[in-house]
């Protein structure tokens, strides 16, 4: 009995903020400039979690392409995209949400991957296995992870 309860709590926590307010990738609407005004979850983003997502190779891996001085203790920042220092000054929260969810709505044909998108891929694979995808397509980041990343970017002033 006890075991079931724990499992259930763990499961709910694991689902994160997949609550009634979560907007699915297929249901989001960008402004003409590529911004996303509405929160994807209705739950405020956590900048500490956001920094983890940005640094981690298995999550956002943003620093593969971007340098961020604030994360200088994480080794190897790339130089494919612009340095993100000051991103919170240059962009509004809505604009940053749009860039992280699908940068191609802001920057035409951007090289930056779309982190909250589930369709339109060519030869979608099963993560990094090289095999074909099976089952339902998960976006690269969850709705809450996007919010966390945006919250962190907003601290870069």
């Amino acid at each position: 009995m006890k075991r079931t309860t724990i499992t259930l709590i763990a499961l709910l926590a694991g689902l994160g903020m997949a609550n009634a307010d979560t907007v699915a990738p297929a249901d989001i609407t960008f402004t003409d400039d590529g911004a996303l005004a509405q929160s994807l979850t209705g739950v405020a983003g956590d900048p500490v979690e956001g920094a983890k997502v940005i640094s981690s190779k298995s999550l956002g891996n943003c620093i593969a392409c971007h340098e961020i001085s604030d994360l200088a203790d994480v080794p190897f920042h790339g130089e494919v995209g612009p340095i993100l220092d000051g991103a919170g000054d240059r962009w509004s929260e809505a604009e940053l949400r749009g860039i992280v969810a699908n940068a191609k709505m802001t920057f035409y044909e951007s090289m930056m991957p779309s982190f909250y998108k589930t369709d339109g891929f060519i030869r979608l694979g099963k993560a990094y296995t090289g095999k074909a995808y099976e089952g339902e397509v998960e976006p690269l980041l969850s709705a809450q992870q996007v919010e966390d990343v945006v919250a962190y970017l907003m601290t870069l002033k």
Partner: peptide
């Protein structure tokens, strides 16, 4: 080639 395509999370 296979490795580079796999690294884009593609079916190589």
């Amino acid at each position: 080639f296979k490795g580079c395509i796999r690294d884009t999370r593609a079916h190589t």
